[in-house]
């Protein structure tokens, strides 16, 4: 599973970081510091929860072979 982040949409709520600080790393200003990453099977649930918690819907989940895009 892959996490794909629309950094332009990030408004710095940092809810993803609150739930999963190791996955969602912030820059010095408190905004998301990554465009995306692969997630291990163990961390999938946490990544999904974090994606749903984003008030700006900036976090999309893609399977390894194809992109689903943002559910909402």
């Amino acid at each position: 599973m892959k996490v794909v982040i629309d950094r332009n949409a990030c408004a710095g709520h940092a809810r993803c970081h609150e739930l999963a600080p190791e996955l969602f790393v912030l820059d010095d200003d408190g905004y998301i510091a990554t465009d995306g990453f692969s997630v291990t099977t163990e961390a999938e649930k946490l990544a999904l929860r974090s994606a749903r918690a984003c008030p700006e819907r900036a976090i999309a989940i893609a399977s390894d072979d194809k992109t689903h895009g943002q559910e909402q």
Binding site: E18, L26, D28, D29
Partner: peptide, 8 residues
């Protein structure tokens, strides 16, 4: 932003 970030 940096003055009021979660880390600060």
């Amino acid at each position: 932003n940096g003055l009021l970030s979660p880390n600060k």
